[in-house]
C-alpha cells in the first residue's frame, strides 16, 4: 500500500508539471501546429494520470479518442486552412488583457480555494468497485443507470456527424461539366486561338525544385502561375521570386540543347501529344501556355 501511494505520488508530481507546461504551451504558442502538438502531449500525460487514478478504461479511451481522433481532426482542419499559419499574439481589444487577467486569476484563486478542502476524510479507493474489472464496472453503469443518457449521447454523435456533412456540403450552382464537355471546350479553344491541347504541367515541372510551392515553367521560361495549388495561394505561401527560378531553368535548357537554342526547346515543348507545331502559331502557342488560362477553368 505504501508503495502504491508512493508510486501514485511520484506519477503525479512528474506528470503535473508537464501537464501545466504543455497547457501553457498550447495556449501561448504562436503557431497553431505547435499548440496542437502540445495538446497531444498533454492528453497523453493526462492519460497517465488517469491510469494512476485507477481508471484504466479512461486511460485507453483518452489516448484513442483524444490523441487518436480528436487531435487528428484538428490537424486535418489545420491542413485545410494552413498548417503554418501563425498568429500575432498582440492584443487588439482595449482593456481585454485586464479582463483576461482578472477573469483567469480571479477564477483560479476562487476555484483553488473552493476545491482545496472539498474532499474531507479518507479516500475510499476504487478497489472494491473495480473488483470485476474497471471496464466491466463502467459498462454496468453506462448500460444500466445511464442507459438513457448513453442513447441520447449516441444520437447526438450521429446528429453531429450529419451536421458536419451538411456544413461541409456546397451546392452546385452550374451544371456539372464532365470529361466530354471539358474536352470539347479544350478543342474549341485550340481551334479558335490555339490554346495548348496538352495537360497542364504540375508544380515543379521544369522548375528549380519539385516542391509544390514552385510554379511550372512554360516555353521560354514563362511562369505558369496556375500550376500552384490554390490553397497555397490563399494561405499566402511565399514562393521564391520568379527571377530566382527562371535563370537556372534557362541555364538548364541551354545545357540540354547547346547548339539548337530556342528551336530545340520548342520541339521539346510541343512533344507531349505529338502535335505538329503550327507554322505561324509558335509564338502564340507559347504565349497561350504561359498566359493566364482562366478560360480553361
Amino acid at each position: 500500500m505504501i508503495a502504491m501511494i508512493a508510486l501514485d505520488a511520484l506519477t503525479f508530481w512528474v506528470s503535473a508539471p508537464l501537464i501545466v507546461i504543455f497547457a501553457l504551451l498550447t495556449v501561448l504558442s504562436r503557431k497553431t501546429v505547435h499548440a496542437a502538438l502540445s495538446l497531444c502531449a498533454l492528453m497523453v500525460a493526462l492519460g497517465v494520470l488517469y491510469a494512476s487514478l485507477q481508471a484504466p478504461f479512461l486511460f485507453v479511451a483518452q489516448i484513442i479518442v483524444y490523441t487518436g481522433s480528436v487531435m487528428m481532426i484538428f490537424l486535418f482542419t489545420m491542413m485545410l486552412i494552413g498548417i503554418d499559419s501563425a498568429e500575432d499574439l498582440k492584443e487588439t481589444l482595449a482593456g481585454h488583457r485586464v479582463v483576461t487577467a482578472v477573469g483567469v486569476f480571479g477564477l483560479a484563486g476562487l476555484l483553488v480555494f473552493a476545491v482545496a478542502g472539498a474532499v474531507n476524510g479518507p479516500e475510499v479507493g476504487l478497489e472494491e468497485a473495480n473488483a470485476a474489472g474497471n471496464a466491466v464496472g463502467i459498462a454496468e453503469l453506462v448500460f444500466s443507470r445511464y442507459a438513457f443518457a448513453f442513447e441520447v449521447a449516441s444520437a447526438m454523435v450521429v446528429v453531429a456527424a450529419i451536421g458536419a456533412m451538411i456544413l461541409a456540403h456546397t451546392e452546385r450552382l452550374s451544371p456539372r461539366r464532365r470529361q466530354r464537355e471539358l474536352l470539347e471546350e479544350r478543342l474549341r479553344d485550340w481551334a479558335s486561338d490555339g490554346a495548348d491541347l496538352g495537360p497542364r504541367p504540375g508544380p515543379g515541372v521544369y522548375a528549380r525544385h519539385n516542391s509544390i510551392e514552385y510554379p511550372a515553367l512554360g516555353p521560354h521560361d514563362a511562369v505558369v502561375a496556375e500550376s500552384i495549388s490554390e490553397t497555397l495561394v490563399v494561405r499566402g505561401s511565399q514562393s521564391p521570386p520568379v527571377s530566382e527560378m527562371v535563370a537556372p531553368a534557362r541555364l538548364a535548357a541551354a545545357q540540354v540543347a547547346p547548339g539548337g537554342g530556342a528551336a530545340t526547346a520548342q520541339t521539346a515543348q510541343t512533344g507531349p501529344l505529338g502535335r505538329p507545331p503550327r507554322a505561324a502559331g509558335t509564338a502564340s502557342t507559347a504565349r497561350a501556355i504561359g498566359a493566364d488560362r482562366k478560360d480553361r477553368r
Binding site: L93, H96, V99, G103, V104, G106, L107, A114
Partner: peptide, 22 residues
Amino acid sequence: GNVRSYAGVVVIGTVIVVAALV
C-alpha cells in the same frame, strides 16, 4: 460583435457567481 469581449463578460460573470457561492 466581438466574440472575445463577449467571452470576457461571461468569464467575469462566472467569477462573480463563483465568488458569491464561495
